[in-house]
């Protein structure tokens, strides 16, 4: 990367990188962060578009000192403000972020799993580069599992051919991952 810290603009509650070469670098070389405007599944690293970051990604990168978020007036938006916004915009944000951070810190690629019906889809290599990503669904620690959810998790993982893992954060802040596999 060149030209100092990467900068992103806060638009409402969305965070966008307008510097296209740096956006491309962040996506293709730094761990597949964000999503290019109007490009759903980039195949080759020649995309020339703005890159939208989720609040989770923006917070993670800001905490790592890799990203500076500024608002429309050019004022910096610090990590605490990003976190506060996340809590307002996203139920259960702290737990979801703790899981996101835990997975990213392990060197895994963590993307939205919405299309598969889970919080995250997790890759070792990256989207488009492997066929066996797994799904991680974050539930609040005090949510109490309905057996129906266990069956759904097992069935879903079977139908999308991806391991389905339920993640939660206990009161001590430890992240745990449970897997349910249909047996008979």
């Amino acid at each position: 990367m060149s030209g100092g810290k990467l900068r992103a603009l806060l638009l409402g509650r969305r965070v966008v990188v307008f510097d296209r070469p740096r956006a491309r670098d962040l996506y293709f070389n730094e761990g597949f962060y964000g999503k290019f405007f109007m490009v759903s599944k980039p195949k080759t690293p020649n995309v020339e578009r703005e890159l939208e970051l989720s609040l989770l990604e923006a917070l993670y990168l800001a905490e790592k000192g890799k990203l500076e978020v500024v608002d429309g007036e050019g004022r910096p938006v610090d990590v605490e403000e990003l976190r506060r916004m996340g809590r307002e915009a996203y139920e259960n944000f702290d737990e979801v972020y703790a899981v996101y951070k835990d997975l990213r810190d392990r060197g895994l690629i963590v993307k939205s799993g919405m299309k598969f019906g889970a919080t995250f889809v997790v890759y070792r290599l990256g989207p488009g580069l492997e066929h066996a990503p797994f799904l991680v669904h974050v539930l609040p620690y005090d949510s109490r599992l309905d057996p129906l959810e266990i069956v759904r998790a097992g069935r879903l993982s079977h139908s999308v051919r991806k391991r389905f893992i339920i993640a939660y954060v206990d009161p001590l802040g430890r992240v745990s991952y449970l897997q349910f596999r249909w047996m008979m």
Binding site: V151, Y177, L178, Q179, W182, M183
Partner: peptide, 23 residues
């Protein structure tokens, strides 16, 4: 650990439960 999940009609599905990702 196996959960035997019994539905409203008495049908049973078995699911293996395990902690993964070394946590």
């Amino acid at each position: 650990l196996i959960f035997a999940i019994v539905d409203k009609e008495g049908n049973i599905s078995y699911y293996r439960v395990e902690k993964v990702m070394g946590a």
